[in-house]
């Protein structure tokens, strides 16, 4: 699962950047790969973890407290 994830992300990044890899400067590539890595990590973790923390719950709680429900 983990390997699949990394592979598919690598392929995506490869095809995504293939045409203009050389044109990009280092900072951009760094940000790009950091974000890809984060998303890849989340993707592979959520394959194992039963319930991922989701922003829906806290938002719901905050709003319900604000609205006084």
């Amino acid at each position: 699962m983990f390997v699949m994830m990394v592979l598919s992300y690598a392929i995506t990044a490869f095809i995504d950047l293939k045409s203009n890899y050389k044109k990009q400067d280092k900072v951009k590539l760094a940000v790009y790969f950091t974000l890809m890595a984060i998303s890849c990590a989340i993707g592979s973790i959520s394959g194992y973890v039963e319930k991922m923390p989701s922003p829906a719950e806290p938002i719901k709680n905050i709003i319900f407290t604000l609205m006084g429900k």
Partner: peptide
């Protein structure tokens, strides 16, 4: 260049 990573995060 940021579209692919943000898009995957969105997914």
């Amino acid at each position: 260049i940021l579209i692919t990573p943000t898009g995957l995060l969105m997914v």
